[in-house]
Each structure stands twice: as C-alpha cells, then as structure tokens.
Design a protein around this nucleic acid. Structure first.
Lengths: 333, 333
DNA sequence: CTCCCGTCCGTGAACGTTAACGTGATGGTT
DNA sequence: AACCATCACGTTAACGTTCACGGACGGGAG
C-alpha cells in the first residue's frame, strides 16, 4: 500500500496535463466564456483522471461564494425541526449547496451571532426560523445576504417568507372542538416567536375571553401551562396546544390531576410529529408537511439568490408562500 | 438611512488605522508570534471599531482550515439523531467550529460522497455514523482527514471511536424479559450498520435459536419485521427491537393481530426517544445519553485534530470510548 | 487583396490572509 | 567595548482561483 502523496492537484496541473492554460480549465468547469466542445471534453477528462477538485478557498476568494447555505433555528432536538431540516438538506444537495445549521435556543443574541457567522462564512443565503430578532434586524440582515424567513410573516415586502398555514390549522382545531360540543376552550401558547399566528387564530375562533396561558414550547412547558390554566379555569374542557410537545405535557398534567383525555378534557396539538399517532391517547393535531416546508424554503432561497446575482440592490419582492395545514383527528379530541 | 458601502474592510485597513503592519494585526488576532500587550490591545480596539472580520477564504487558503467539522449520518429525521446532533452543535460551537451535516440514507455511495465533499470543504475533521462503508474506506478517509466513528467499533487502532454500550443495553433487556418469565424471545434487528452489536448481544443472551428478523430501522420496518417474526414463531411472547421506531412498529403490528402489549407480547426498544414515556403503552427501552454522545464525539475529534496538527503521519491510537446504557422499565415490558 | 468580426484561447493581475524571514532596538554578558 | 540573545515588529512571497484583457486564427464581405 503506497503512501498518498497528499499534495494538492491544482488547476495548473490540469492545465499542464491537458496542454491548455489555467483559464481554459476554468472555462471548461464553469461553462463561462467561449470554449470548443473538443477541448472542453479533453479538459474534463484530465480533470477526472487527475481527480482534480477546485479549492473552495481559492474560488471563494474570487467569487465570494462558498456554495453553502445557513439555517438558523432554535433547537434541532425539538422534533419539529428534523423533518424540515431533512427537506432543507435534500433540496440543498440537489442545488449543490452544503448546509450549516445553527441552534439559538430562541435567544436574540445567538440569532444575530448565528447570522453574522453565516455571513462571514460566505454562505449564499440564510433560512431563518427567527423567534427573537425584530423585523428591523431581519431587514438589515437581508441587505447583506439573501434571506428567507420561515413560519413568520415577511418583515418587509423585500424579504421572502414561507410559512405553514397555522392560522387555518388552529381555526380548524377550534371548530372541531366546538363541533364536539366543547363550550369552554383554553390555549397553551408557546413563548416563542413574534407572530403569534396560532394565538390570534385561537382568539378569533374561540369564544371571547377564552383563557390563554403561555409557556416554553416543550413537554414540561406544556405541563406547567396546562396546570396553571386548569387551576384558574376549571370549566375548560378542551385545550389547544402550540405544538405536540406542549400537548403531551398537557396530557401528563391532566392525568396527574385525575382528569381523563379526551373524556374529561380534550387536547389538540400542532405539528403532527412522527409518533403522534402512537401516543396515549393518539394525538389529534394540526398536520403540516414539514419536509415540504424545508424543500420550499430552499427553492425560494435559491430564487432570491439568483435574483440578487443579476439585479444588485433593488431586489424584487418575492411572493410570500403559505403551506396548507389540515386537522388530523385521532383519539385526544 | 445611508446605503452600506459594503466594501470589505481588510486586514490592511486595520493595519493602516492602527499604524502597524498587516502581520502585526494577524498576530494580535491569532496570538502567534511575539507582540506587546499594548499594541495588541490597540489593534484589537481598531478591529472592533472598524468591525473587521477576517475572510475565511483568504485565511483558509493559507491555513487549509475552514473552522468547520463534518457530520455524516443516515437521516436527521430519524429521531435518534437530533439529540446527538444537538450535543455535537453545542460542543462544536464551544470549540469555535461550525458544523456541516450530510444525510446519506445509509447508502455507501452517498457516504463516501459526503466524506469527499467534507474533505474538499476544508473541514477540520469528520464525525461519522457510517453504516455502509467498509473499514478500509474509513481508514483511507482517516489518512486524509481526522475521523471519529460513532456507534461502531474502530476500523483500525489508529481511528478513534465513540459508541453507546448497546451490548450491555441489549443484555439488560433480555435479562429483564427473562426475569419477567418470558421464555421465547425474538429480535427485530435494523438493516443497518456493519457491527450488529445489538444482534450479537441478543444472540448471546437469549436462548439459542431465538429468531431474529431484519428490517429497515423505521416504524413500518418494525411493523413488517414483527409481522413476519410472529407469523413464523407464534410462540414468541417478547420482542427486542433495534430501536424505538421499530418497537412502535411492532406494537402496531401486534395490535393489528389482536395481541395486547405487554400482556400477550412484551416489547422493548432502544434509544429512549423524547416521547417514549408517552407512547401507548409507555415504552420500556434501553436508554443512552444521546446529547452526551454528541458532545463526546466532538471532544474526541478535537483531540484527534490537535494530535495530528503536531505529529504528522503516525497518529497515536486514541482510546475507544464506550458510553453507558441503562434499561428504563415502563409499560411495554 | 484587405479589412473586420467572431471564435477560441492565453497572460497578467488581483482576491485577503499567514508563513518565513529580516531588521532594528534593547539589555545583559564577556 | 564588543558581542549576542531576545523582543517587537515589518517585508516579501505564496496559497489557487477567476476576471479583465488581449492575441491568434479563420472566414466572409467589401
């Protein structure tokens, strides 16, 4: 077994081997400028033969592009994100991008730090599930780097956004509970985001004055919020939770207080996690296609990147996208 | 609102503003070479003032380091991975690394493609949950780039590895089932990996000839495997699943056949996913600290990277790490 | 026959940083 | 007084690629 020389094969090596100049090799790879089909083939063959791979550093130095794209989210361990992340990864790979992920725990400081790092890393653009940063910061970021915001309304007409239609989803949940005869609903809202789409949809669809308690969008957060809400409003017989984790927490809290789900109190969540159907009871929840959300985010970002490449400055406003949400009725409501 | 000039502020700008040379600015940042505390402070101040950020491209061109580290796994949407990914992200951030993730779906081609891309991206090292690649390929990869393999035995003494102690975990599961009076066990093995730690541990601890059926490590895979196993071996009253997803699938299949869990047939999984305690029935499963696994992987990789920096070539063999596994007894067994 | 234009390709420079080396000042030793 | 080590910093070159030019060649129009 021979020892690998491990010396980098550069574009000059290829040029020498193919009997052309550096620039011609570059042209053969990137398809820019005029080059005959014959020499192009020949150069490509020698590239293959020498196993030449262009240096991302040298290339990035000239082009300022790294071929990567950044994703900012609060916590990849939250089971909502992995599914959308998978969609992002797949679509990004299809477009030739690598993906860099940053977890922020919904801290404004870490969100902007992540954005800065992505910016300095030479990424082509950013996909952001921002929960703490204000609209001004996002607009400022978008001035420096193509940005697509996820599950949040566009901070300005110039910024693209892709969201799940949780407004409709929450309304469907409330209507379903009404249809089942529930008169006193309560909501467990997640202490995240600046949009409060679910909260507003709930407030609009439920009876006026229906109680809303806010907590961290986790199991324990849901348990605490449910305990508080039911303590203050014992008449409530149905809970709408910000996400499935909070719904699970609510179910736990309900059980601890001796109330049965759904007989004594119904619970409906949001997200439709992988295991939602296997919970006890099977969770009634608002379903969205998380993989598709990830895919759409990348497609949208790619469009924005492409648009900015040509038209420096006054970027045209991309149409905000809204992905459908449906209610999946199972055992918990 | 003034338009951002958007011209890059370079190290020369800082040098000029601080009244020193480029090299001194570099020294002030990187702490290499001799520099007085006074000028260092002054340079750092002007860096702050001008908001100078070094170009990763230019820096990478000289140093060949990008400050990133690659993670190769089969599918981030598999709920096992997000928890360990979070550990990786946090530890990586603490060490000043960015993280690039590649999904391979356990395809050998995509595993090596991911490795190659990470290599070309100038990453400092790779953390790999390899399931398809052979030991030789891993050793070859390790020659080009610091590598730590996860949940797999080291392909060679020179390669570091960190694994969960599933051998013990599976044995604990089998012993628990025996103690509960089960005489006929079966195993649902995942069609992944080259190690088969869980399978071998099951074969060693269970009665000779206990049936083992293999399938994809997913819910549907577990359902299909369970259906097949129970069809061929109706006497089996307890199943050990490769992971929690397969366990859930098994429970589904059991129910479809009218068998109650755990009364007619017990089920124990591996991983202890976030929602394992809230399933119906609450899942008895082998628990490991996935976040800690991620953290340890990064720490180990950092050690390997550091070791290689000094001692080019004959890298010292790092000690394989084994993280403890415990059995969490809940309702399914 | 000359001119011009399009096609194809080569040459020099530049991107921003760090490695390697060089230089002057300072202070201590012989 | 001469020397040398050490410190603190500056100068030059190089990393590998693409961009902006410019030149050679062939063919068609005048």
């Amino acid at each position: 077994m021979e020892v690998e020389p491990s010396v980098r094969v550069t574009i000059d090596d290829v040029a020498r081997a193919a009997g052309v100049s550096r620039q011609t090799v570059s042209r053969a790879m990137n398809g820019k400028g005029e080059i005959s089909a014959a020499t192009r083939r020949r150069v490509l063959a020698t590239i293959e033969e020498l196993e030449y791979r262009p240096s991302v550093f040298a290339r990035g130095m000239r082009t300022r592009r790294a071929g990567t794209l950044g994703v900012i989210l609060s916590d990849i361990a939250n089971p909502f994100f992995p599914a959308v992340a998978r969609g992002v990864f797949d679509a990004a790979a299809a477009h030739g991008f690598s993906v860099v992920v940053h977890n922020t725990d919904a801290h404004a400081g870490r969100e902007s730090a992540a954005a800065r790092e992505i910016l300095e890393g030479g990424a082509e653009g950013v996909i952001g599930f921002f929960e703490a940063l204000g609209d001004e910061e996002l607009v400022a970021l978008h001035r420096r780097l193509p940005l697509v915001v996820a599950d949040r309304r566009a901070p300005a007409p110039t910024v693209a956004s892709v969201s799940s239609d949780f407004a409709t989803g929450t309304r469907l949940a409330v209507e379903h509970l009404h249809a089942r005869g529930h008169r006193h609903l309560g909501m467990l809202d997640g202490a995240v985001g600046v949009d409060h789409v679910r909260r507003h949809a709930f407030a609009a669809a439920a009876a006026p004055g229906s109680p809303i308690v806010t907590g961290p969008p986790t199991i324990t957060g849901g348990a605490a919020a449910a305990a508080q809400l039911l303590g203050e409003h014992p008449e409530v017989t149905a809970l709408v939770a910000f996400n499935d984790l909070m719904a699970v927490g609510a179910i736990r809290a309900l059980r601890e207080r001796g109330r049965r789900v759904p007989d004594d109190c119904a619970v409906v969540g949001h997200d439709d996690l992988t295991l939602a159907a296997d919970l006890d009871p099977p969770l009634t929840t608002v379903h969205t296609d998380k993989y598709e959300l990830g895919r759409t985010l990348v497609e949208t970002l790619d469009a924005v990147v492409r648009a900015r490449r040509d038209d420096t400055g006054a970027t045209p406003a991309p149409e905000p996208r809204l992905l459908p949400a449906t209610l999946v009725v199972r055992g918990s409501a």
